[in-house]
């Protein structure tokens, strides 16, 4: 496996259409390696669609996505993941009986090698591999404050911790690029602060690039190095948080959405 370091990401002219709706319309921007890069915009702006394009779930009708110069757009989702892109989801849907540990171990799937026959026969190397990865997952869970809950079924955890598990699962993939889709949605202020801290610590401890979708402007302004703003599938602004904040195009996009005040003051409601 190649040494995993933070990687720059290039989005170039990406267009995705669902019938008449253009979820993304000729969107281009670059993500610097080591940055926490925020993607913001009103509901339906195309943020999650952008993540889906990057992770290979949606195939764009035009444009290209490159990680470290390598085109991702032709790859299937698990192949994109294999290049070191971990992703958490906007909606956690954790109805299953799976324990926290098992959910986190799912993130290790591609880092593990044992074949079907080896695990069925309980070969020593398969057992050893399982042990080693459990140890690493426990370490990561510890970092997220989840270590005490590893054996609990996911659905028993409070919502905030379920969201953390989803982020932790992405981190368990040992990604170079971590994509988080609204990790603070539904969390209270204290929880939002915690997740902000976790993101910054992860970035420095693991040398990650973070791509973050978030509606909480306070959080975005606080932790992002760079922002890209989408509206109706188009990139309407791109720059440092303070530059974006004073961009009139951004203010008008948010006008009437109730988030306009947040944008200007940079505070959570």
């Amino acid at each position: 496996m190649s040494p995993q370091t933070a990687a720059p990401l290039d989005i170039e002219g990406v267009t995705v259409a669902f019938g008449a709706v253009k979820a993304l319309d000729d969107v281009s921007f670059s993500v610097q390696s080591g940055h926490v890069h925020g993607v913001i915009g009103p509901n339906g702006a195309g943020k999650s669609s952008l993540f889906n394009v990057i992770s290979g779930v949606y195939r764009p009708s035009a444009g290209e996505v490159r990680l470290d110069g390598m085109a991702l757009t032709k790859l299937r989702p698990h192949e994109v993941a294999g290049l070191g892109i971990g992703r958490s989801f906007q909606n956690v849907d954790l109805a299953g009986e799976e324990s926290v540990l098992e959910s986190l171990l799912v993130g290790r799937h591609d880092l593990m090698r044992s074949g079907v026959t080896a695990v069925m026969l309980g070969l020593p190397r398969a057992r050893r591999e399982e042990r080693e990865h459990k140890a690493r997952v426990t370490e990561i869970a510890d970092f997220f404050g989840l270590a005490d809950h590893l054996d609990r079924p996911l659905h028993e955890l409070p919502y905030g911790q379920q969201k953390l598990v989803d982020v932790a699962r992405a981190v368990c993939m040992e990604p170079r690029l971590l994509m988080l889709d609204e990790p603070a949605a539904g969390l209270d202020e204290a929880e939002t602060d915690t997740i902000s801290e976790i993101i910054l610590d992860l970035r420095s401890a693991l040398d990650l690039t973070v791509l973050l979708i978030e509606h909480d402007m306070g959080m975005v302004m606080k932790i992002c190095d760079h922002l890209t703003v989408l509206d109706f599938g188009r990139r309407i602004s791109d720059g440092t948080p303070s530059a974006v904040q004073s961009d009139p195009a951004v203010a008008s996009a948010y006008l009437g959405t109730g988030e306009a005040a947040e944008i200007e003051t940079g505070t959570a409601p």
Partner: peptide, 17 residues
Amino acid sequence: IAGGRAPVDPPTDTDAL
């Protein structure tokens, strides 16, 4: 309570990772 907003435990030891 499922869906409740119990506070997230802060990471205990951030250098551990």
